[in-house]
Write a protein that binds this DNA or RNA. Sequence first.
DNA 1: CTTCATTTGTGAAACTGTTCACAGTGTGAA
DNA 2: TTCACACTGTGAACAGTTTCACAAATGAAG
Lengths: 219, 219
Amino acid sequence: MSNKPTAAAIPGNTIGRLSLYRRLLQELLAQGTRQVYSHQLARLAVSTPSQVRRDLMTIGFSGSPRRGYTISELLANIEGLLARSIETSVALVGVGNLGRAILAYYANRQPVRFAAAFDRAPEKTGRILHGCRCYPVSEMAEVIAREQIHVGVIAVPAAEAQGVADQLVLAGVRGILNFAPVRLHVPAGLYVEHVDLMMALDKVAYYAHQQVEQQDSSR
Amino acid sequence: MSNKPTAAAIPGNTIGRLSLYRRLLQELLAQGTRQVYSHQLARLAVSTPSQVRRDLMTIGFSGSPRRGYTISELLANIEGLLARSIETSVALVGVGNLGRAILAYYANRQPVRFAAAFDRAPEKTGRILHGCRCYPVSEMAEVIAREQIHVGVIAVPAAEAQGVADQLVLAGVRGILNFAPVRLHVPAGLYVEHVDLMMALDKVAYYAHQQVEQQDSSR
DNA sequence: CTTCATTTGTGAAACTGTTCACAGTGTGAA
DNA sequence: TTCACACTGTGAACAGTTTCACAAATGAAG
Ligand SMILES: NC(=O)c1ccc[n+]([C@@H]2O[C@H](COP(=O)([O-])OP(=O)(O)OC[C@H]3O[C@@H](n4cnc5c(N)ncnc54)[C@H](O)[C@@H]3O)[C@@H](O)[C@H]2O)c1
Ligand SMILES: NC(=O)c1ccc[n+]([C@@H]2O[C@H](COP(=O)([O-])OP(=O)(O)OC[C@H]3O[C@@H](n4cnc5c(N)ncnc54)[C@H](O)[C@@H]3O)[C@@H](O)[C@H]2O)c1
């Protein structure tokens, strides 16, 4: 296989921060700012100048020593990298409380397009929610192929998640964002990102409590 | 300050995995299983036996070479560590689409208790949603002190998030779980966890695309 | 043109987290 | 009681990430 120097497997943490930089740069640009220094971006991202420079170095972007980085160029660079020029089409499975909130949030929001939603319950299918048509699960393979969907978002109950993941994989999806509180097993090479609210809250609660204890013991 | 050996600052990744183990152990116990080996837990958590053993070593828990770990003891240990014996009381700010989904999800779910919700919109306050009373923002400081709330969950629009965070900090909260797509500035020592859906989707989209490209180029 | 202040780009160090490899150990079998 | 096995506990190697420190570059000012 021929390895282009461009496709050099950027680590996940860096991708996450680039996603954040993109939002910040979009805001700056909207405010009319043209140039930005690493320390400015770092302050906005609650990070360090070194980290910012290292990240931009990772994607091969260069600034000018006295002027900093040109926002429009940097933004184009990051967007090209994250979106790979074509808009990402996404499918949602599970149009419950969380699923509807997600659809509402991403409605008309670049650069992600929810091209289809799926639900098992007949009363949810057939409608259009926030610009996204809801299909019965039986049509999943067909719709995902037709709409060229490469990413699936799972928002079904925990017991259903693995089954839905299997269906998505079978339908040709390459990456999954999973909100159900179970770890999914997928074939090697496919990418799964877990968003686990219970875990997130446990983390906050743990460190918050630790704070309280340290405060108590230091008096 | 006297440093007890117990309060040895466990890394965030480990806390996250412990939270996951807890759920898995609860399920196993409900199924009537009494003992578990590191490789079994690892398979359920989509991890490795080494990782599991290292994590349990970090919290100072020991199993038996031939029998593995006693689930009830391990569970008690993890729960004691995460919850610190008292149930965590949490406040939600922003009862919109996401806020309501979160309330619905955590309703009656151990070990987190949503003790109060706050919203700026008068039509949302005064009611009880999923067992959680919704107050106007003006009562935040009072209610948070009264209910002994140490953790805040932010689900307001991005532009409002920093202001809400400041109010929560002022009210005495020690940790924040933030769903708004901005990085929060808080006084040193307080803990903030960001759940950034845009970032999560960007990551999945990036790696899914990379998959597609590698497949294309390897043919 | 030269100087100066400032910021970038980056090798290397420091740090953090994960995996390996195996000695140590409790258990059940004989 | 002794043996052999399968698993745990853990030091050490390894891998990945962040931070440091400074040479090189740039533009502005005199
Ligand atoms: N609501 C939250 O804030 C929240 C937070 C964290 C995690 N989660 C997780 O997200 C998931 C969904 O949560 P929710 O609150 O939206 O639940 P919900 O019960 O409101 O919605 C679930 C939806 O999935 C559909 N569904 C069930 N099985 C299906 C299947 N096999 N194929 C297709 N559709 C199916 C149901 O018809 C329903 O519409 C759960 O796993 C939950 O644990 C939710
Ligand atoms: N809906 C999602 O799935 C989703 C996903 C990712 C991120 N988010 C983020 O979560 C946040 C909320 O999303 P949403 O979809 O629920 O929005 P929403 O507009 O439905 O709800 C926002 C709620 O916050 C209240 N509010 C606004 N300003 C406030 C203030 N200063 N104090 C108290 N309450 C205030 C509003 O009255 C409203 O009820 C946003 O920042 C959004 O970017 C949402």
